[in-house]
Design a protein around this nucleic acid. Structure first.
Lengths: 229, 229
DNA sequence: GGTTAGGAGACTGTATACAACACATGACAT
DNA sequence: ATGTCATGTGTTGTATACAGTCTCCTAACC
């Protein structure tokens, strides 16, 4: 139906498919537990089953999809408990990222962080909330990049996308709050203060967890997040 | 050539291919930077290109393979610096895993850890070094499982395989040493002492890093690990 | 001699085709 | 009425086919 418009520089079709499927999952367009039938997805994307299959496998290793060998793939289910558990991992990983980013700071990395912050500020002021969520993720990832540790970046990319997913599923948005905390983290990194950077990153994730818990408590039943079918 | 013997319970062929390719990379049978030509791999595994392609994509998201859109895939290169950086990530992640494992310990998880330790002890005593390396990885992963955090497990699996890769590439084996440290970590976890468990896990990874650095210094040139071509 | 156009070979990207399997439905037997 | 078996449909797993692109080699040209 809605054919993909593939990017200028001949980015392979499969990458576009992966991106689009991930987007649909993160946005909730594909609901948790929903079955991913290769034929249907292929038709809806205007491609053959082959790129779809490859994408599904990638998304499965990233944790967005569950594959049972002969039975097919479904969008992963995310219990409230699993959502909360993710924050533990984030605190450890992002704490490290912030510390290393402060240690290895360069003019370029500071510039990059500031650039993302500026974009986010602009998006906040203009009330473009979808962009704010994306830019928050981008900022966290930029901190990971600034840490100058390739495996850390590789690991953080799907982790942060998952975090965004968790939030979108609970409808717990907290854009402006985030922004000031990001600024404060940026300052510690730019100042090269490792301990403070780590502490602020951990505190930031902890604050995000509290938002999540509050939202989860009001919008959902005790043990499961909404699992629209 | 060497057709895969696919497991009893009809585990899909593609899973076997992924496992086998990963094994070949970890063992060095496929050298760093070596080109992965789909046709050749397919022929050598006795399957068609399709499962091979899917496997390559999965291994790429795990960080063992690098894919450049129209040019093909190569085994990832691991500089000595990247190898060392991995230890930073491991300290953060495995420290958390040990802490959580101590917090959430159950008779079952303790039993599981002890079982792996017993196997490792037996392998050490019988001098089966390849098995020791695998069992060390298994133990670390078991700690991750004991933490009862699904995303943590998901993240740790490729991370630990990568760690094993790093060691095999530098020929830095330290089996027996590891074993006593593992035992000590197990005891802290079984005692439910969170702080001690985290500290011992971090110390264990730090010790591994020292082994790595020592081995890397003697076997390699300053900035690059051996990159056989 | 160096540089550039052309073409052959190799390989990836994508589509199509077919085989194997799972599940549902319904008929038949007990 | 219930259990078991046969049949059909939908879906995944795998193989094959073809088109597009990159690289390298050759040859012609300046």
């Amino acid at each position: 139906m809605s054919d993909l418009t593939l990017g200028a520089a001949h980015r392979s079709l499969r990458d576009e498919v992966t991106k689009e499927l991930r987007r649909r999952i993160l946005s909730g367009e594909l609901a948790q537990g929903e079955r991913l039938v290769e034929d249907r997805l292929a038709a809806s994307l205007g491609v053959s089953r082959n790129p779809v299959r490859e994408s599904i496998r990638v998304l499965a290793t990233e944790g967005f999809v569950e594959v049972v060998p002969r039975l097919g793939a479904t969008v992963a289910r995310l219990s409230a408990e699993e959502g909360e558990e993710l924050f533990d991992v984030r605190m450890a990983v992002e704490g490290l990222a912030a510390r290393l980013a402060a240690r290895k700071r360069t003019p370029q990395s500071a510039e990059r962080l500031r650039h993302v912050l500026d974009q986010a500020k602009e998006a906040v002021e203009n009330g473009r909330l979808e962009d704010v969520a994306d830019l928050n993720t981008t900022f966290h990832l930029a901190v990971g990049e600034a840490a100058g540790n390739s495996y850390l970046s590789l690991m953080m990319t799907p982790m942060l996308q998952r975090a965004q997913w968790v939030f979108s599923q609970t409808a717990a948005a907290r854009g402006p709050h985030s922004w000031t905390e990001h600024l404060s983290l940026y300052e510690a990194i730019a100042a090269g203060d490792e301990d403070e950077a780590e502490a602020r990153a951990v505190a930031h994730v902890a604050a995000a967890r509290r938002s999540f818990l509050a939202a989860a408590r009001t919008t959902n039943h005790p043990n499961d997040m909404k699992t629209v079918r």
